[in-house]
Amino acid sequence: MKVAVLSFAEERAATYAGLLHAMPDVDLLLADPDGSPDDPGRGRSTARRLGATFAEGWDELFGLRPDAVVVVGEPGACRPLVERAARAGVPVLCEYPPTDGETDAERDADVLARVCEEAGVRLSVVSPVCFGPAFAAVRGELAKGGVTGRLTTIHGAYNGPRPAGERAARSGALGTNAPQLLDMVDAVLGGVHAEQVYAQTNGVGAEPGVASAALVTVRYADGTVVSLDCSWGAADAGPSAAGPVMTFIGEKASVEFTACPRLLGGFDAVTSRERPQTRGTDPYAVMLGEFVAGVSRGSGAGPDGAAALRTLRVIRAARESARTGRPVELAVPYGVAS
């Protein structure tokens, strides 16, 4: 299968390219005609290092007829690439538009979701845990409800550290950590709409105007209450820093899900610190593997454009609630039955 990575404006593109290249059934195509401001030769050098096909321009790239594309890059540049892939009938994996207020993330997501839907192309959004087999097992069993009974409450946390990128850091904990948690909830609840969002944030230990800690509570249209901690944490602060943790409380029993559980413990005599170790499986490798498998099955994988839009609406409401100190009621979008 021919999988293309489009644009190397962000360093992550090289990581994605490396992970895709390692898959046995993938022929990797790369293109980066606009270059990256910090490293204009990144795309070409990655292609050379991996022995991947490098296309000089978008026309040449799409002329090679990729079976799937992964779009990485500056927010403004992503939209036309996704639109072009959709017109060519090629399934797309792309990242969340940033929710830092500089661009209208919801409008972008809405446009992409519609373009892909009209073209009959599956849009998948980067949200690694939602692609994983352990989460699929939880989701499948919760849907049956045999063990837990009817789901009433969900609480969860993802305390991933402050991101290195400046733009991502400006979007705060709600921008970096909330999407994955909300996508998991959306997947388990089957896309039911949020009715009320309440959030509190603080910037203790962060630069002015950046919310490094955030708690978000959401009541969904089916009555489920969800409370999430999206705060940045120290990198080695345990399972919720390594990946999302989530507890699903039902009328009969509850289930705890830990995306990156502790595999090993122990003590490091050199640093005089504990040394927790999580499982070695890279969630991004799992995500790309599932995306490629979904494309070859024709079934799609991970959150789609509509799911991303629901998540972005909750984040926008959370920002408003944090600012005003009041819960925000969300209207069910016109034409959508909850």
């Binding site: 009969k252 289930v255 490091d268 170790q277």
Partner: peptide, 30 residues
């Protein structure tokens, strides 16, 4: 070793844990 210790216990909670009811078919072992 001289550099410290490394420990593991298969009873540490892994990806999925059920409480208040039987585990049922929640099995996931990677």
């Amino acid at each position: 070793g001289t550099g410290g210790t490394i420990v593991h216990d298969s009873e540490w909670p892994q990806e999925i844990q059920v409480s208040g009811g039987p585990a049922g078919t929640f099995g996931y072992y990677g």
